[in-house]
């Protein structure tokens, strides 16, 4: 079985990964633009400021788009089939790619409220993923 790909860590993204290990989802916030930023950047993509703050996300949002991978997965993910890849819109206004986990795959839909959960990948890397809020999508 091919090993899972490990995301490379840059100095300016390290706080994000350190927090994920502690089961916290961090976003950047640009005080000058009053805007949340995801994914973590070296500079604000709008105003170029390097004075970006880290804030903890409420970790809730809605599924924007999703797909259920049933065949032809990358080697490292064949053992995970079927799995859901989704773009989630967080309440803070940013979008992120993720997996929807811990639910009936057939009940995932656009607009479904989701909340963050954390899956450990290595000692250093924990990935934020999402599951339906409360008891939606058949989660017991």
């Amino acid at each position: 079985m091919t090993e899972k790909p490990i995301p490379p860590v840059d100095p300016w993204t390290k706080p994000y990964w350190d927090a994920a290990r502690e089961h916290k989802l961090l976003l950047q916030f640009c005080p000058r633009c009053s805007k949340h930023i995801f994914y973590p950047r070296r500079y604000c993509p709008d105003c170029n400021s390097d004075q970006l703050e880290w804030v903890e996300s409420a970790g809730v949002g809605k599924v924007y788009a999703f797909t259920v991978v049933r065949n032809n997965a990358p080697s490292a993910f064949i053992g995970d089939i079927p799995y859901v890849v989704a773009v989630v819109r967080l309440d803070e206004g940013v979008q992120m790619m993720t997996n929807i986990v811990d639910c009936d795959l057939d009940l995932v839909q656009s607009g479904m409220p989701v909340e963050v959960v954390f899956e450990k990948l290595t000692d250093e890397i924990t990935l934020p993923k999402f599951r339906p809020v409360s008891d939606q999508a058949g989660r017991s």
Binding site: P5, P7, T13, T67, A73, A76, V85, N99, I125, L127
Partner: peptide, 14 residues
């Protein structure tokens, strides 16, 4: 993106 999308099992069919 190796940081933000590859780890979730993305590829072109996805």
């Amino acid at each position: 993106s190796k940081e933000w999308e590859v780890p979730y099992g993305m590829h072109y069919s996805t």
